[in-house]
Computed example of a mutant assay.
Amino acid sequence: MPAPGASQDPALREGGLGPIGEGLILADFDGTLAPGDSHAGLLRFILVRRRWPLLLFPLLILGALLVLLLGRSFARGRGWGIPLIWWSITLGLSPLAWRAWVRAYSASRPGLFVPAKALLAGYHHRLWIVSASPRALVRGQLALALAHEPDGKPWPAHIEATRLRYALGGLIPRHYCHGAAKITPVMARLKVALSLSDSLHDLPLLRLGRVAWLINPAPSLLRRVRTRLPHIVVKQWRLAALPPRP
């Protein structure tokens, strides 16, 4: 049965979503609800503007090599490489400065895909965003994207994202919410009506949904996903057209 009122919701009809059955909705954020990789983008944004962490370039290269060469093993690759990259770029940042960088970067982002806004408007009460980006970054982008919604901010029910902590003067992930690490024990026990992502890394997330959507996939990615998840549904999502300049 469709969710009550879903088929009558004009925002959902305009977004091309149609009715979605009862149950939890699990959505990746970067590349799925919003275009691009804001996690990597935030790190580049901070690095280019702070500049002096470029002196730690050998550590950045080492972190990248660990991710690239050992990335198949989270504990060996991402478990060491990602924290090393984060620590090198954020060394010396105070909590106040960190929040300022997140606000500045969020303001530079293009916003949400049109159907993503419809999804939030119609199903925010049971939507869980599950993201490798830090929670502060996801919330910062949502706050700006939804600030002018006529009915206020349709915040999602829950945001499960990368959690950070300070170590030796810099930020490192306390829990890097990526791949299989996105799935919490609570999440795995819940009834999931829909899961959506743009990434092959999110197959564990996509498998939880009774229905699974792959957002804006390249043909090569679609072929790889369909060999593992034949029932995947492809969705092509776009941003709203920008208003003409005065």
Rank of each mutant, 00 (worst) to 15 (best):
M1F: 12
P2G: 06
A3N: 05
P10Q: 05
A11K: 04
G15Y: 02
G21A: 14
E22H: 07
G23V: 05
L26S: 05
D28E: 10
D37K: 02
D37F: 02
G41Q: 12
V48Q: 15
R51T: 14
W52N: 04
P58C: 11
L60T: 06
L68G: 13
L69Q: 11
F74H: 12
A75K: 09
I89K: 06
T90H: 03
L96Y: 05
L96F: 09
W98F: 14
R99Q: 15
A107R: 14
L112C: 00
L119W: 03
L119S: 01
L119Q: 03
G122T: 06
H124L: 01
H124S: 07
R126H: 08
A136R: 07
R139A: 08
A143S: 13
D151H: 13
G152A: 04
I159P: 09
A167P: 02
G169V: 04
A180D: 14
T184F: 09
T184W: 10
P185F: 03
M187Q: 13
M187D: 06
L190W: 08
S195G: 05
D202K: 00
L208Y: 01
A212P: 04
A218R: 14
P219N: 06
P219Q: 07
R226M: 10
P230L: 10
H231S: 15
A240E: 15
P243N: 03
R245M: 07
P246I: 04
